[in-house]
Design a protein around this nucleic acid. Sequence first.
DNA 1: GTAGGTGCAAACAATTTGCACAGTA
DNA 2: TACTGTGCAAATTGTTTGCACCTAC
Lengths: 143, 143
Amino acid sequence: MPEANQFFRRLKQHGYKITPQRQAILQCLLDNPGHHSAEEIHQIIKTHYPHISLDTVYRNLHTMVALGLVIALNFADGRNRYELATEEHHHHLICLSCGQSEQIDFCPLSYMADTISRERNFTICKHSFEIYGYCHNCRQNQK
Amino acid sequence: MPEANQFFRRLKQHGYKITPQRQAILQCLLDNPGHHSAEEIHQIIKTHYPHISLDTVYRNLHTMVALGLVIALNFADGRNRYELATEEHHHHLICLSCGQSEQIDFCPLSYMADTISRERNFTICKHSFEIYGYCHNCRQNQK
DNA sequence: GTAGGTGCAAACAATTTGCACAGTA
DNA sequence: TACTGTGCAAATTGTTTGCACCTAC
């Protein structure tokens, strides 16, 4: 696992042990680009590592977010999604019918961040920009 | 309640009855501009209408969102916020420490909506754009 | 060997639902 | 009167936590 090593190194640097569970979670995120819920990640890992518990997935995603290895997204369905922090920064078009999402490369914050920090005296940590609606396929099927 | 009548009319048009609970919820949103969680709305109403149940608040907010009278916002803390659909469209700066929010009048979608609908073949229903960080006060206090 | 990590089960918080009764139209 | 709406309690969903055992280092 070539790419994975940089993540293991960063875990170690912060005093975290490299357990098989942590390896599996990172490998899963590397192998499956895009955002996934904790439940999805758990299901994917279980196919080749049946004994991992959902709690462990949550716990480790949480620490990986805290270390900046992983980014957490909150979508409108009340379920968090996670993706590797290395992925290009982007936002999403999310279909309310099939749940599929496409990327939007444009980020409004890139134009606003400086102005907001300065004029509003606000330290920006993270942001969300997601667009919900119906994709081409689902619109067709509903007619 | 002058302003409230237009909402009652729209409920009636769709075959919904005007119950005191529904009146109280709408009045609460009219009297308290901005977004509030279901729990907050329930607490506010209980001060002068002690017998309303939280379930009823949820149920009615849900139908009001479906009718377009109310808008639901999902913030990062996993609790939905609701505001009247008549309020000026805006987004938020949300402090991760004190939870207070300020409005941002700028909406990135106003510049992108047409392009996305056309180029991505996507029917836009709603969107989120919220910026999280630390407000001036909280940054001061943490030092 | 030892501290941190895991799995299990139980706890939690936000929200939804089934059901019998109550209240609007 | 008829049927929608309500309150209560219980169920559900996503996530967190306490605890005893396990394992990476």
